[in-house]
């Protein structure tokens, strides 16, 4: 789901950066509040960001010669709140782009908005909607699944509008496949496989931390 540089136009990248900038600013303030709230917060926030970094490295192959990975967006959004989750995922995406060439640097705004903002807030509100209304495991699963699918919709839209906007002599200047291709390919694979994986990861990891928290407070 990491959009590399050159796959979307500079104008798309800059628009996304301009949209992301105030959200990053506000999110940093919220993350700082969390960091100052108690002594262990920095350890917990950093560990959750590291968790997101690590789980994104675990590529899972699927039929059709492609692969994908979980993101941990719902885990972070539920345990840290959506703003801190957005900042943590954005920071991870920044390091992935700058150090490892995974996702573009100019495309950081677009990737952060999709995986960080849409994913975290989507997951968070799915969870809020279902929490205490269904079983906890179902609420967690839907949070992970729903956030992931929403993030994939955002990525599919950003990529798919490129050939609608930027053509020259009948050739695409950037990503050449339109929405008719990106929606089934990106959203479809996330609805069928990666959303499900994200859902199970969310259940397992949040339940683990709920358990150790209870042990710690007991």
């Amino acid at each position: 789901m990491h959009i590399p540089d050159g796959f979307i136009s500079p104008s798309t990248s800059i628009t996304a950066l301009a949209l992301a900038a105030p959200l990053w600013w506000y999110g940093m303030k919220k993350a700082k509040e969390l960091l100052d709230s108690h002594e262990d917060a920095v350890t917990f926030l950093s560990s959750m960001a590291a968790f997101s970094f690590l789980i994104m490295m675990i590529n899972i192959p699927i039929p059709g010669g492609t692969s994908g990975h979980a993101i941990g967006m719902a885990v972070l959004a539920i345990l840290l709140g959506p703003w801190a989750a957005f900042i943590a995922i954005s920071a991870v995406l920044f390091f992935q782009a700058v150090l490892f060439g995974d996702g573009g640097i100019l495309a950081l705004g677009a990737n952060s908005l999709a995986m960080g903002f849409v994913g975290s807030f989507g997951s968070y509100y799915f969870y809020r909607l279902l929490h205490n209304r269904t079983s906890q495991s179902l609420a967690l699963f839907v949070a992970g699944y729903g956030g992931m699918v929403l993030a994939s919709v955002a990525i599919a839209l950003i990529l798919g509008i490129q050939p609608m906007l930027f053509m020259e002599d009948g050739k695409a200047l950037y990503f050449p496949f339109g929405l008719d291709v990106t929606i089934p390919a990106v959203v479809g694979s996330h609805m069928l496989i990666f959303g499900v994986i994200e859902g199970f990861v969310t259940v397992a990891v949040v339940r683990f931390f709920e358990k150790i928290k209870r042990v710690a407070s007991a």
Binding site: D5, V98, L99, F100, G101, F166, L173, Y174, F175
Partner: peptide
């Protein structure tokens, strides 16, 4: 696609 050529930087640990 023309815009994809020479885009981005060479990451230290690609």
């Amino acid at each position: 696609p023309a815009g994809m050529q020479n885009a981005g930087i060479q990451a230290p640990i690609p």
